[in-house]
């Protein structure tokens, strides 16, 4: 169970005009602008639910994921995940979650994937039996056999993403955060990743929270969407709420963004 209540997160962003003279001025006096990345965000997600978290660029999606996974500390608000506050009980909390950042790798670049997995086994203190079982299962479900002996840098993006997902699930987390897991993937890899997430949710009852810009991901995976814009939750409901009356979800979403001036 995940509950977030009135969470606010503000960033201080220094700003200056382009050009040398303003760069010089900025040396002595800096102007800051406060960006309200999250402004009173509240929602509840039940165990085993699969939720699409969407919104335009800079809406606060990543900030929310980072707060939920214990990376960032918000200024205000409460957040409880299975009874733990992520930024206060970080170590206890992160044992139960898996995080995939689509744009960044967590695998060691120059060594075979399996070496990275072995290190993760040590980091998460996974016992040998559970590790072998999970590895077999994930290898099977994600089609990793043949990839595990390859150094990460030689994998294609699609292959790497499948390994990333496996790496985040070796320790059997109850909650999986996926931050744009299909970004840049070809059609085959996208489908493979989607199928896997569906199976994972069905078989292991893993709670999945997914951020993406790909509406097909959302259509394929989730019934519930939470839509955030400028730090506010604008919609917590069904995909049909947006799609209704439009030819495609993308069009519906675009008109929704426009009507809210996003």
């Amino acid at each position: 169970m995940i509950t977030m209540q009135d969470v606010c997160k503000t960033y201080k962003v220094s700003k200056r005009d382009a050009g040398f003279s303003s760069a010089f001025k900025a040396l002595f006096h800096k102007e800051y602008e406060l960006i309200h990345a999250l402004d009173g965000v509240s929602f509840t997600i039940r165990d085993g639910e699969m939720v699409g978290y969407i919104g335009p660029n800079g809406a606060g999606k990543s900030s929310t994921i980072k707060i939920l996974s214990g990376i960032l500390t918000p200024e205000e608000g409460t957040c409880l995940i299975d009874g733990l506050t992520p930024w206060k009980n970080r170590i206890e909390h992160v044992k139960n979650i898996g995080v995939v950042f689509g744009q960044r790798t967590q695998l060691w670049w120059d060594v075979p994937v399996l070496d990275s997995f072995e290190l993760l086994k040590e980091i998460y203190r996974i016992d040998a039996h559970a590790y072998r079982r999970n590895l077999e299962q994930l290898t099977d479900m994600l089609g990793l056999s043949g990839l595990l002996q390859t150094p990460t840098r030689q994998l294609s993006l699609g292959q790497r993403m499948r390994c990333e997902i496996a790496a985040s699930l070796l320790h059997d987390p109850k909650i999986l955060f996926l931050d744009e897991p299909t970004i840049g993937l070809d059609a085959v890899s996208k489908l493979a990743v989607r199928d896997f997430i569906l199976r994972l949710n069905a078989e292991k009852k893993t709670t999945v929270i997914l951020t993406t810009h790909d509406m097909q991901d959302i259509e394929a995976l989730t019934s519930r969407i939470i839509l955030i814009g400028r730090g506010h939750i604008l919609l917590d409901g069904n995909l049909t709420d947006i799609k209704e009356g439009f030819a495609s979800t993308d069009e519906g979403l675009a008109s929704f963004y426009q009507s809210h001036n996003l």
Partner: peptide, 11 residues
């Protein structure tokens, strides 16, 4: 972004 990764690991 490696530090993000460090923070989501239980060590």
């Amino acid at each position: 972004g490696e530090f993000d990764r460090i923070l989501v690991r239980p060590r």
